[in-house]
Structures are given as structure tokens and as C-alpha cells.
């Protein structure tokens, strides 16, 4: 049946935003302070590391986790960024991405676990995730500005909203994919739901969760230009200047730096969950086994 009058969804939404701006001002202010502290903390940490040392650290990390090829690419890529005089903006972007990813993880992991536990939570959370992922980012950039003013913070908030769904979805998926007979085995030995979750389900879900982490990082990087529109600092800003001032070259250099950072982070995080072809062990698990074997030697 068609209605003769238009439903006032937009008007209601505006009312809600207005009302929240007024009534939750304290909450938003606190959140803004917290977030901007976190971001600037990250930023000053990254800036405190000398460029040369930073590159060396990243090359070492890439080598350790992902192998020689990625390490060489990481070194050359970072040197190129420095050469393009984009180092400061890159660190700003990294700080924004790190903060957003960290917060997305902090909210997303528990949410994913919650979602995996029963079908009711799954049915509630799923449409929310769809909303977060597909609602065009510009639509919630505006209320973010209402709540947090212009700057890096609303950019981070928008990034968190946009980048969180994969980690939630894949945590849920990873836990639900644990074979039924392994769950049964664990229960048959008398495990509590808590033991089942932490000794069986989550460890077995790790490769899938890491794939989610990778996606979350990639999505936060893809938001840097959009968040630059509301005043977030970093590489996005360079690209935005390139666009608005018709400086194609500058825009390209900024974009290239984003791509380099994205590729480095992608390859490194992807390899975290991969199995080492030589030992058949997953990188992350490898670390743990090494630790345990040490204690074993003492024990037996």
C-alpha cells in the first residue's frame, strides 16, 4: 500500500542529532578529548623516532614477518615517501590509522565474540554492521562534525565506524567456523563456556580474525582522504589540496604515499596469519610455541 504522505524519517533524524548535540555535549567533549589525546600521543611517539630508525624498524619487522621481498619493498617505499617530503603527513596518517584500528579492535572483537555466541545477537548486530558499512561516509561525517567540531577527531570517529565491520564479521565467522566435533570434544571434557571460548574457539578463529584485522586497517586507510575533508591532518590533506587546487602532481604524490603505506601494512598483517611454508606454523602461533617450549624445558 502506498502512503499519501512522506514519512518524516529525515526530520526525525535531524531532531535526534540536535537533541544529542545538546544533551550529550559533555559525553562528546570527553570523547573528543580522549581521542585527540590518543591520536596526538601516537603522533608524537611516531615523530619522536628518527626517520632513519623508523625505516630500519619497519624493514626489520617486514623481514621477520613477511620475508625478504616485502622488506626490500618496505625500505624503498619509505625512503621514497621521505624523499617526497611527505614524512610528517605520513606519520599523521599512521597515527590516525593506528588509533582508529586500535579502537575498532577494542570494540569490534568483543562485539564479534558476542555476535558468535547465539543467533539473537547475530540477528541484532548484523543489520547494524550493514548500516555502518554501506551508509555513505559523507552522511555521518556531518553529524560527526556536529558532535566533535572540525579536525582529526571526527575523522577518526568516521574511520572507526567505517572500518569496524570487517573485524566484527570475521571474528564472528572465525568462531562459528570452529568444527562442531572439536566443540563437542571440549564440552565432553567438561569445559565451561568461558574455557570453550578462550581455549578452543578463539585460538582456532585467529587466522580469520587476522584477515579481519587486515581488512579493518585497509578500510581505515581508505578513509584518510574523506576524513581530510573535515579537517583531519595527514596524507589525505595533501590529496585534497591536489584536488581543490588542481595540482595534479601533488595529489598524485600524496596518493602514491597512501598506496605505499597500504601495501606495506597489508603485506605485513596478511603474513601474520599465514603459515610458514617451511615449518607449517603460523607466524603468530610460532611466537607462542617458542615461548611455551622454553617453559617446557624447565618443566620436564
Amino acid at each position: 500500500m502506498m502512503l499519501s504522505t512522506k514519512l518524516p524519517i529525515g526530520d526525525v533524524m535531524e531532531e535526534i542529532i540536535q537533541w544529542m548535540t545538546v544533551n550529550f555535549a559533555g559525553f562528546f567533549e570527553g570523547m573528543k578529548q580522549g581521542l585527540s589525546q590518543l591520536i596526538s600521543g601516537f603522533q608524537s611517539l611516531l615523530n619522536a623516532i628518527p626517520v632513519f630508525l623508523f625505516i630500519l624498524l619497519f624493514v626489520f619487522l617486514a623481514w621477520w614477518v613477511a620475508g625478504k621481498g616485502i622488506a626490500i619493498f618496505t625500505g624503498l617505499g619509505l625512503i621514497l615517501i621521505h624523499n617526497l617530503l611527505l614524512w610528517k603527513q605520513t606519520m599523521q596518517t599512521l597515527a590516525l590509522v593506528s588509533t582508529s584500528t586500535l579502537i575498532a579492535l577494542m570494540i569490534g572483537l568483543p562485539l564479534g565474540i558476542l555476535m558468535s555466541q547465539n543467533d539473537i545477537t547475530y540477528k541484532i548486530i548484523r543489520p547494524i554492521l550493514d548500516f555502518m558499512q554501506t551508509m555513505p561516509a559523507f552522511v555521518y561525517l556531518i553529524p560527526a562534525v556536529y558532535f566533535f567540531d572540525l579536525g582529526t577527531v571526527p575523522g577518526a570517529v568516521a574511520t572507526i565506524i567505517f572500518a569496524m565491520p570487517p573485524i566484527v564479521r570475521l571474528t564472528n565467522l572465525g568462531i562459528r567456523q570452529v568444527p562442531k566435533d572439536i566443540i563437542e570434544a571440549s564440552k565432553s571434557f567438561g569445559s565451561t563456556p568461558f574455557q570453550l571460548l578462550f581455549k578452543v574457539q578463539i585460538p582456532l578463529a585467529i587466522p580469520t580474525v587476522l584477515a579481519g584485522l587486515n581488512q579493518t586497517i585497509m578500510l581505515s586507510l581508505s578513509m584518510v582522504v574523506i576524513s581530510a575533508m573535515i579537517g583531519a591532518e595527514g596524507l589525505g590533506n595533501i590529496v585534497l589540496q591536489g584536488i581543490t587546487q588542481m595540482k595534479i602532481g601533488k595529489g598524485f604524490e600524496g596518493g602514491l604515499a597512501v598506496v605505499i603505506i597500504a601495501m606495506i601494512l597489508d603485506r605485513i598483517t596478511q603474513c601474520l596469519g599465514n603459515e610458514n611454508p617451511k615449518t607449517g606454523k603460523m607466524f603468530i602461533r610460532n611466537l607462542r610455541t617458542k615461548k611455551k617450549n622454553k617453559s617446557l624445558r624447565g618443566g620436564i
Partner: peptide, 14 residues
């Protein structure tokens, strides 16, 4: 009191 053995072993791969 009760322990169980499964058809497809159900061992923890990690």
C-alpha cells in the same frame, strides 16, 4: 567420570 573419543578425532590443531 566420562571421557569421549570421536570419529574424526576432534583434536585441537593449534
Amino acid at each position: 567420570k566420562i571421557a569421549m573419543v570421536f570419529q574424526n578425532f576432534a583434536l585441537l590443531p593449534h
